[in-house]
Structures are given as structure tokens and as C-alpha cells.
């Protein structure tokens, strides 16, 4: 029988601890290395675009090195005025379309969702099923009938086809998102508000909406991103360059019959991401804040 002194026992324990810590550190390093490589693969196109925006045109596709031989910051001011019109106009167009689309979508979809989640009316289930079915139809299928419709009412070549449908709760995805959100709000709140003298509209406006900031923020963020970077919609409905949105304008840097200005194209592409970035930073905090608003027991 061997008796260990306290000193020996603590030495053994320490050596085990050192081995364990070493192993743990190695595992952490491996994990982080793996994640770093993965994220590099993900952001590489973005890095490439940022770098290309300050490269001389001949180096963008000709030189494998990421680092430019010289920084052409001039791509930015040149790109801004590089087309027939200044990007100020395109940004203005994009902002008009996007802001109205965000307002329209959040308002109208939440309105429709409130009806589906809280009100009782004839044919509610059928309407809900119909709405869900529109989720399964690809946009490209309705594109042509929709175009013909807007052509007939003379809206082609205006912003209206891009804006008005947003005010008519046309986006089943967001309606569904908000129906699900509203359904988990306790009905007791509606009833308390009812006794407090609220009409169904007032309940929606004063109780349901303020409690649904996470769903509203999600809708606003996605509508903003999808509308801002939408290419197909503006391409089809906008013909006059003065009405072009930013993505449409970017395409004009690539020219079939003369020299394409890729440096300027990438410079403006970088700038076109900035609003999305700012909007996301600003609205994502509502998503988090909304979760902590439960005021019941």
C-alpha cells in the first residue's frame, strides 16, 4: 500500500490540470481557426469588392493580388458622376421607393395580420389559406400578368407598381410572420382594452402594434433590404434613366460597346450597401428589445 504525501498528490493533480488546460487551449485554437477560415470564405467577395473599388481598372481582373499597386480613391467621386446622371438622382429614387415600401408593408401587412389573428369574419380560414397559397407561387409566374395589368392602367414607367402593392398587404410572408406573432400575445390584453373602451382599430394601434416591435422590425428590415437591392422589379417597370434606382444604375457601368468602368462600378456598389448597413444597425435593436416586453404574471 502506497501512501501519497499531500505534496505528491497536489503535484500529480497540477500536472493533470496542466495537460487538461493545454488540451482545452488547443481545442479552442482549432475551433477559432476553423471559424475564421469559414468567415473569410464568406466575406471574401465583399473584401474583393472593397479592394477592387480602389484598384486601377486593369488590375481588377488582371492581377491576382488583393493589394492594389496604387489606391485610386478617385473612383468614388468619378463613379458618383460617372453616368449620364449623378448618383444623387438614383439614390433619391431608391430612397423614395424603399421608404414607401417599408411604410406600406409594415402598415398593411400588420393590418391584415391583425384581422387574421384577432377578428372573426366570414371566410377567414379560406382567405388565410388563399394567402398562404400565394407564398408558393414564384414571383416570375405573376410577373407578366402583373405587368400587363400595370400597363393597362398606365402605371408603367412610374414608381407606382413598385409602391402601391406594398400598401395592399401583398406580401404573404410578412402577414404570416405577424399573424404568428400576434397570436402569441395574450388575448386578455385585447379584452382588457375592450373593457377600457377600445375599438378593434384602437386595440390594434395602441396595444398590439407597440407590443409587436420585433415583428415590425423584422418586416421593416427585410422589406428594406429586398426593395433596396431589387433589380428585377425596377428593370421591368422603369424605362427612363431619370427614374432608375441604384441597382439599375449600377448596371449602366457595364457597357457592351465601349469600355466598362469596373473600378467605378465597385465603388458605387460599396456605397449602395451603406444604407442597408445603417438601417440594419438601427432596427435590429428593436428585435432584441421586444423580447423583454412581456408584462403578464
Amino acid at each position: 500500500m502506497t501512501d501519497l504525501s499531500i505534496q505528491e498528490a497536489s503535484d500529480i493533480a497540477r500536472s493533470y490540470r496542466i495537460i487538461r488546460d493545454k488540451r482545452k487551449r488547443r481545442a479552442t485554437i482549432t475551433k477559432h481557426l476553423f471559424l475564421a477560415i469559414c468567415s473569410l470564405v464568406m466575406v471574401y467577395p465583399l473584401i474583393w469588392m472593397i479592394v477592387s473599388s480602389v484598384k486601377p481598372d486593369n488590375e481588377i481582373f488582371g492581377n491576382i493580388s488583393l493589394w492594389p499597386s496604387e489606391f485610386i480613391w478617385q473612383n468614388y467621386p468619378d463613379g458618383w458622376e460617372g453616368l449620364f446622371l449623378s448618383f444623387t438622382v438614383f439614390y433619391k429614387n431608391s430612397i423614395i421607393v424603399t421608404v414607401l415600401a417599408v411604410i406600406g408593408n409594415t402598415l398593411s401587412c400588420s393590418f391584415a395580420a391583425y384581422a387574421f389573428a384577432r377578428l372573426e369574419f366570414k371566410g377567414k380560414n379560406i382567405f388565410f389559406a388563399l394567402m398562404m397559397m400565394t407564398l408558393m407561387i414564384p414571383y416570375h409566374v405573376v410577373l407578366i400578368p402583373q405587368y400587363l395589368l400595370f400597363l393597362k392602367i398606365g402605371w408603367v414607367n412610374t414608381f407606382l407598381p413598385l409602391i402601391v402593392p406594398r400598401f395592399l398587404a401583398g406580401d404573404a410572408f410578412f402577414i404570416f410572420l405577424m399573424v404568428q406573432f400576434f397570436r402569441q400575445l395574450p388575448r386578455d390584453l385585447d379584452e382588457a382594452a375592450m373593457i377600457d373602451g377600445c375599438s378593434p382599430f384602437k386595440i390594434y394601434w395602441a396595444v398590439i402594434l407597440p407590443l409587436s416591435l420585433p415583428a415590425l422590425a423584422t418586416t421593416a428590415i427585410f422589406t428594406f433590404i429586398w426593395t433596396w437591392e431589387d433589380f428585377l422589379g425596377p428593370l421591368i417597370y422603369l424605362n427612363d434613366i431619370r427614374d432608375y434606382t441604384v441597382p439599375l444604375a449600377l448596371r449602366n457601368f457595364i457597357s457592351q460597346d465601349s469600355v466598362s468602368m469596373f473600378g467605378q462600378l465597385f465603388a458605387m456598389s460599396i456605397l449602395s450597401i451603406v444604407p442597408i448597413f445603417i438601417f440594419f444597425i438601427f432596427f435590429q435593436k428593436f428585435i432584441i428589445r421586444g423580447i423583454a416586453t412581456s408584462g403578464l404574471k
Partner: peptide, 9 residues
Amino acid sequence: FQSYALYPH
């Protein structure tokens, strides 16, 4: 109400 139903916001 049993759940109090106070307006959380």
C-alpha cells in the same frame, strides 16, 4: 383578470 392583463408597454 386572472393574468392582470396590464399593458406591458
